[in-house]
């Protein structure tokens, strides 16, 4: 299947945000520490999330982008749950910037997953 330019663009956008967020978590950014403290997952949960985000970001830039997009959707679904149940829309007075980033990654990953769905073994053929 030929990959179109919008799909590649969506991959790069999602991957950049994910990799940046992952690096911030690894570095122990105070904002990230605060979030994971609220979730009672500090520091273990922060590192697990950072590993998954990094993996999803790198996969999105490789020929396994379809897998990366599914992983990214999963991560973003988890983040949505966190915002919905514990963090709220605004975190550290960011005016909803974090949720905005989350939405961008989720939508672009969904777009990648849909346009590359045939590349996912077994499941892909059912769409």
């Amino acid at each position: 299947m030929k990959t179109t330019l919008p799909t590649r663009l969506a991959q790069v956008v999602a991957a950049s945000i994910l990799i940046f967020a992952s690096v911030m978590k690894f570095k122990g950014d105070p904002g990230a520490i605060e979030i994971f403290t609220k979730l009672e997952m500090e520091p273990g949960g922060r590192y697990i999330a950072a590993i998954f985000e990094m993996l999803a970001g790198l996969l999105l830039l490789s020929s396994f982008a379809a897998f990366g997009s599914v992983l990214a959707i999963g991560m973003m679904a988890g983040a949505l749950i966190a915002h919905a149940t514990r963090l709220g829309l605004e975190v550290n007075n960011d005016g909803g910037a974090l949720v905005g980033q989350l939405a961008i990654v989720l939508l672009s990953s969904l777009f990648v997953a849909i346009s590359r769905r045939k590349e996912i073994p077994i499941i892909g053929s059912s769409f």
Partner: peptide, 14 residues
């Protein structure tokens, strides 16, 4: 109980 259980929530949600 713990937010960690949401890893399972996400997997089963998908």
């Amino acid at each position: 109980i713990s937010f960690y259980f949401h890893f399972g929530t996400v997997a089963f949600l998908l």
